[in-house]
């Protein structure tokens, strides 16, 4: 579905992301974990087009999309959410989702799509409210709904679970699973909350200091000595 080849981002001499490659299968959930500053969000930004890669390539179903601006990447079918949620504070919950549906990959039946996305995450009854009145978990769901309304093929989720209370975290994890089933989506997921990673992800990629140091099933990865030392080293 999504193939990333030797993607790098350099700031002067500093390598924020160093030749990271990955492959995301159809309807797969691939977790990206790693200590703070490992380059996870930069990797996402490059795939989503908000930052230009220094080198490397991104393919969506064989089509090269590396270097396209963010809004074009959305039209191709890749959409991201942000670690710190960024709803349009001046638009209602419904209009937020409607923006996604109106300008996304498939722009037909925008109102119906916006409604469907809000119903899926359970925010339809809050449709007339401003995002500022939602809880953090609510705003994370709104960000998810707005992304879903763009009719994506690949979803890039940046820490949608971290920061909410345990029961909300559980609900969020179930929601992600439900979304994958309902929409037949492939999901790339950055997450710090390890139990969620263990239960949600089919495979996990571990980044440290900009490089991919391990990949495999969650169980394989957590017992990998390289991974353990990366985490302990950073702790």
């Amino acid at each position: 579905m999504l193939r990333v080849e030797k993607l790098s981002k350099r700031y002067g001499g500093l390598k924020a992301v160093d030749e990271v490659s990955l492959e995301l299968g159809r309807e797969e959930i691939l977790g990206v974990i790693g200590p703070n500053g490992a380059g996870k969000t930069t990797l996402f930004s490059m795939i989503a087009g908000s930052q230009k890669p220094s080198s490397g390539a991104v393919f969506l179903e064989g089509e090269s999309i590396g270097g396209l601006p963010a809004h074009r990447v959305v039209h191709k079918g890749i959409v991201r959410t942000h670690q710190i949620v960024r709803p349009f504070a001046n638009l209602t919950v419904f209009e937020n989702a409607l923006a996604g549906a109106t300008f996304g990959r498939d722009q037909t039946h925008a109102r119906a799509k916006a409604q469907e996305a809000l119903e899926l995450v359970g925010l339809w009854n809050r449709r007339g409210d401003l995002p500022g009145s939602l809880t953090l978990a609510g705003r994370k769901k709104l960000e998810l709904a707005r992304a879903l309304a763009t009719t994506p093929r690949v979803l890039l989720l940046d820490e949608v679970i971290a920061g909410v209370n345990p029961s909300e975290a559980l609900e969020m994890a179930q929601l992600i699973k439900k979304i994958r089933e309902a929409r037949k989506l492939s999901i790339l997921l950055i997450e710090h909350v390890m139990p969620a990673v263990m239960t949600l992800c089919d495979r996990v990629l571990v980044l440290d200091a900009g490089r991919a140091i391990a990949a495999g099933t969650p169980a394989q990865v957590v017992s990998d000595p390289l991974v353990i030392s990366a985490y302990l080293g950073s702790a």
Partner: peptide, 24 residues
């Protein structure tokens, strides 16, 4: 219209607008 929705989204957050497919 579509234009109005795009403009309001851009006013709210330009980067997030790009992330839903709006060309600012």
């Amino acid at each position: 219209s579509r234009l109005g929705l795009a403009l309001f989204a851009i006013r709210g957050d330009v980067e997030a607008a790009a992330d839903v497919g709006i060309s600012a």
